[in-house]
Design a protein around this nucleic acid. Structure first.
Lengths: 192, 192
DNA sequence: CTCAAATGAGACATAAATGACTCATTGGCG
DNA sequence: CGCCAATGAGTCATTTATGTCTCATTTGAG
């Protein structure tokens, strides 16, 4: 028995293929299906049997990205405690999938005409709610809209992920860099 | 006499073509050469006569983007006054070319192997210097590196530009959104 | 007006990615 | 061991973007 229906042979590891594809496409968004197959250690034929066309692969990656993202949101317990702490937990939890998210983020810009996955909307909603909660409790400023704070978080995650892969900043600084800039900004803060 | 050597006919307006191409490619990064030509109101043949291949066009756009960006840096007078004020002037001046910059920013990620234009390095240097100056005068916090602040500015500009074109935030809020988030962060600041 | 030069439209070959297909081989299960 | 299904390697046709070429037409300069 298997969740996927592949109960006879295990040589095709769907999850492994998706992760390899995510890694590769994160670094080279224009990678060929053959390059993806080779990176995953399978043949192009097999890759095409399971993902008919690049679209199917990207859509599967989208599902994976949404699932990982929502898992990170769960693990961060966004509704608990101070909003600032929730943002810090969120950035820490979401770090492992920023590469995939950045790829999907830029990929979505190409699919302008098509309908986009409802999962992104759910995630948007939860993040915006978090920032709105912070504003309502007086923790966050209100002259920056919760929508913008959400978009800014995406942008900072992408910039941080890119800067890390380029070697311009240390991977271990990722969480601190992003969370503290988003929360506190660049200006020095009087310790009160 | 002419700067370009086209002193007999003026029906090819290089600057116009570049701006149209920038507008189009900003919205649809995968636009065809023919789509670019049609958008610019010229034939594909003429477009190819002046820019042999997509690479030549992108490289010309890169030159344009760098020139516009450096002009914005000049206009912002980065070395004058408080660093925070310089950042605000910079964001205001650079807003008109964020679309083009965002396109080139994502395009550069594809040219991983190739040498990248020295202009970006110059711009990087000037921005990093600005943030470093702010840190040295005690205006900016020092636990976030000047390099990261520069990268974060790029990310916020891209996210802001994208959010505006998607209609999620108002165009008029662009400068305030980006500059204030980068400078002050999301947390409410005690008015002291 | 006349000529030179660039344009526009179209044809053409090319290169690359893709999807579908065949067939021999492999590996697990009964 | 023998079957059976999936894999891998290869082939083929199709599509698409691209670069080049020709030639009639247009347009500005003299």
């Amino acid at each position: 028995m298997s969740l996927m229906g592949y109960y006879w042979l295990m040589s095709f590891d769907r999850d492994h293929v998706l992760h390899v594809a995510a890694d590769l496409l994160t670094r080279k968004a224009t990678a060929t299906m053959e390059e993806v197959a080779r990176a995953a250690g399978i043949s192009r034929a097999t890759l095409n049997r399971h993902f008919t066309g690049r679209d199917a692969l990207v859509r599967a990656l989208e599902e994976l990205g949404i699932a990982k993202c929502e898992a990170a949101l769960e693990a961060a317990r966004l509704e608990e405690g101070a909003a600032a702490g929730a943002v810090r937990r969120l950035v820490r939890e979401i770090q492992p999938c920023t590469g995939l998210l950045t790829f999907l983020y830029s990929e979505n810009q190409l699919f302008e005409g098509e309908k986009q996955n409802a999962g992104w909307f759910r995630i948007d909603e939860r993040l915006t709610s978090l920032f709105r909660r912070g504003q309502e409790t007086g923790e966050f400023r209100i002259d920056l809209s919760a929508t913008w704070l959400t978009e800014a978080l995406y942008g900072l995650l992408a910039a941080g992920s890119w800067a890390v892969t380029e070697g311009r900043v240390a991977r271990n600084d990722f969480t601190h860099m992003i969370a503290e800039l988003l929360l506190g900004g660049a200006m020095r803060r009087d310790e009160s």
